[in-house]
């Protein structure tokens, strides 16, 4: 009996925007393997293809060519609907901003993915409340996003990303809107809680200080990976 690998593997990944002379290669023949349970920072200058790589790995974008394999399935061959289900069930997301619904209190924002997956509201909210407790937001469950600080809102987003026990958490510039101290605190919470949950973490960031929280760093330039190095 062979076990299916939980490594996230991209091979010969190419993403091209436009055609002919105006074609731009956001990704050019990218090969990368992200081992299960690893935490990886993707770094590089603006326009180097970091976010495009994250979107392809997460099944948000279908690449122009190449494959992304996750638990034995090539994401690029899946329909939009199947990729949507996969993102909901296997992946968690943390973005820089604009991810929490302003009308919902923190606990319901976190419970949302569980309810979408069919968990009854009462159970979903109970699980969400435990996650918020775990991330130090015990007394703030009923607060709306507009009543939370930036750091607190990002903790809520982390809880929401982890509440469905995903295999991979993707974070795109998660500290971009935070001050330095809050950003580091947020990265500590993100890496520790993702590790504790046994999930893989892929973080896109400009900041080398933020990248140090991850176990390895991928450097990108002009749509290609130039360096893969252990960080710690």
């Amino acid at each position: 009996m062979t076990s299916i690998s939980s490594d996230l593997v991209a091979s010969r990944l190419t993403q091209t925007y436009g055609t002919g002379l105006s074609a731009t290669h956001a990704l050019a023949d990218v090969d990368v393997t992200i081992p299960a349970g690893a935490s990886v920072a993707v770094m590089g200058p603006s326009g180097s293809g970091k976010t495009t790589l994250l979107h392809c790995l997460a099944g948000i974008l279908r690449p122009t060519a190449g494959s992304v394999t996750w638990r034995g399935t090539d994401l690029t061959t899946l329909s939009d609907a199947r990729r949507t289900v996969l993102r909901r069930e296997d992946f968690g997301f943390v973005f820089q901003s604009g991810q929490l619904l302003p009308e919902l209190p923190a606990v319901e924002n976190v419970a949302l993915p569980l309810m979408l997956a069919g968990t009854p509201r009462r159970d979903a909210c109970a699980t969400a409340a435990r996650w918020l407790d775990h991330l130090g937001l015990g007394g703030l469950q009923e607060r709306r996003p507009g009543e939370l600080s930036g750091g607190q809102a990002q903790r809520v987003a982390i809880a929401r990303a982890l509440v469905c026990a995903p295999g991979v958490v993707f974070a795109d510039e998660p500290t971009g809107a935070l001050d330095r101290a809050t950003g580091h605190d947020m990265m500590r919470v993100l890496t520790e809680s993702t590790h504790a949950a046994g999930a893989t973490l892929v973080v896109v960031t400009h900041d080398p200080e933020i990248a140090r929280w991850c176990s390895r760093t991928i450097l990108m330039q002009d749509g290609r990976i130039t360096t893969v190095a252990a960080t710690r």
Partner: peptide, 18 residues
Amino acid sequence: DQRDEYRALALAGTDLAV
């Protein structure tokens, strides 16, 4: 007005039908 929230939900795997 709420396109960022809609986008975040869609990217995180929320069906358009929902």
